[in-house]
Nucleic acid binder design. Sequence first.
DNA 1: ATAATTTTGTAATCCGGTTAACTAATATTT
DNA 2: AAATATTAGTTAACCGGATTACAAAATTAT
Lengths: 364, 364
Amino acid sequence: MTRENSTSQLASGIVTLQDIADRCGISKAAARWAVMSDDDTHVSKQTRERVRKVAKELGYNPAANQAARRLAYRKAGKAPLSYLIGLIVHDHITANDQYFNPLLLGALEVLEAERFGGMVMSSSAFNPSVPDVHLPMVIEHGEVDGAIIYGSFSTMVEQLRSCPQFADRPIVSLISPLPGCSQVVSDDYSGGYALMKHLLELGHRKIGHFFNLAGTPHQLRGNGARQACLDAGVNPDDCLHHLDYNKFCKTIDEEIEIIKNEKKITAIVARQDLMASLIYQALQRADMRVPEDISLVGYDDSIPIVDTSGNNFLTTIHVPLVEVGRQAIALLLRHLHDNTLPIETVSLPVELVVRKSTCTPSQA
Amino acid sequence: MTRENSTSQLASGIVTLQDIADRCGISKAAARWAVMSDDDTHVSKQTRERVRKVAKELGYNPAANQAARRLAYRKAGKAPLSYLIGLIVHDHITANDQYFNPLLLGALEVLEAERFGGMVMSSSAFNPSVPDVHLPMVIEHGEVDGAIIYGSFSTMVEQLRSCPQFADRPIVSLISPLPGCSQVVSDDYSGGYALMKHLLELGHRKIGHFFNLAGTPHQLRGNGARQACLDAGVNPDDCLHHLDYNKFCKTIDEEIEIIKNEKKITAIVARQDLMASLIYQALQRADMRVPEDISLVGYDDSIPIVDTSGNNFLTTIHVPLVEVGRQAIALLLRHLHDNTLPIETVSLPVELVVRKSTCTPSQA
DNA sequence: ATAATTTTGTAATCCGGTTAACTAATATTT
DNA sequence: AAATATTAGTTAACCGGATTACAAAATTAT
């Protein structure tokens, strides 16, 4: 009942459609229809079931022969899913960034849940200063189904689009928006709003902040903060004091000294928790207690800052980074499953986490 | 002078050997010999050069057609390089680990320099608690040329070895050794030695440390430290005091209180800079000045700890993490270029970085 | 000058999956 | 009952590169 050439099993260790066909006494094409397609009219129900059973027994894995599959698809001008996703990250960011790991973690989690193959990170995108930035081969040759970009330049998008093999594949940018891409961001406006609302409700009216720095996220936060002032009937220009301390570890103590002497500012809003940590240390050095002498608010909830009792005590805005990573992959997969899906922005809600670094201002 | 079917150029956007052959008026096989092999006798010098010129003009990229290549190679039981490397990382570690990013950075740097395609990270290795740990498809199916493992279990190696398609590929483990793999580590013994030598030379004779924790690196550091004592004529058992504080943010202040009251220990050696940072904060809370009241030493030089003047002031052992990442890829590539290369351990030298957190003990 | 050998190249087949084209039944329609 | 449509398959021809077997031309040997 079987064909004559039943060899391949040992040759490469890979089970092929021909192996299945041989075992079932049918043709390769029939075997394929039975195993690979659900709604085709090319094979009977009994045969389908029989063949699938054999396929399972033999351990046939359709993805195992990507090579043959890709080659065959080429004729039709199509490309099968590779189950690989490109991950493009700027090296500045990888070097010392608290966001990267949680983002990665979330992304990998969903990738795993969806039984996707993996993520290709490449070094090639890591030197945007070099004029001849070459993309990783796998990406350039379209051997990834799409890409996630974190913290890279917009030129990277153009470059991706200029690869004939990749051009029309979906791209999702994380945290910072990129032109012409779907994106997953956190709701910075609401973050700024919530944070300021909290401080205003506590009674603070002179608040030092680091919002007005370059970059969209901070502008959004600033806008949110101003709106919170307006909604509370407070003039934002009177209330918000931009602290122009810019370079870490250089004049922060002087900045704090001024605040201490002027006795006007009763709360400080840091740009990130990491910055809050540095500010906290400077405040300690200046003998200013948090929150008794001054309130301190972070942003991102990325690192713990412990107080005397060993507890994480920083009031901050929690940015759901792991969730951003998750949603980014989810969004990319949605694009893969439906290539008519338009560019989309997913903005994830942030959460005010009130801990012990904020209280009502001491001087009335 | 050309053949009849010169179609493919537009069909897929990929330049094939046939395209080149057509343009040169020769056969596909001749084109391949001309372009792909150097020492073969199947083609004349003139033809070779002519064909290569055309290939370059047309932009033929032999790696572009991985699919066809892999498929063809299968007949010979061989596999061409995919120019992809698997990166297997344990999720515990990715979640909050200062080592991961620099390691990644170094690895990607060399990958880029060697014009390798990229690195496949996958989620699949991220749940070792799950009994049915499945490896990423790309790795399982041998579509990576080798793998780098960081912080994973030894069962992962067994699992990799049990994939017929991957079994004999090289694996390099980072930082922590793994059985049967080449590895790139930092010289923990020397690190422990150098650090202790420094403290002993300053005059410290009662030193609190966190060495005796589980795991080879710390044992090595402890051994180095003990040897430094012996070489200085000091009894290590008298000198080294194991601090059994174990859980962060719970009893660290108590531990410090004891040290403060007993007035015996004059220096503390932390397990990592991160821990040193927590200890430093606890010391500040306990009104103990560093280094006047007590010296503090970190390990790994991974995070800055700033003093009142804003400078990174922690004396520590610099672990060349970026270099570990670089060397790991370099070692893996060596294995790929020479598959007779035996398993190898590369131990990178560490460096004592003396900053301001150590000085001679105050009480004589 | 002829045979033997090397150089230079062609033709054909395979890798494994996909798919169009075709055949032989069986089922349905008129 | 005959014509038509559907079902259940089979064959064969790709995809592009690797490789072996073979052929023609050029070189060398005898």
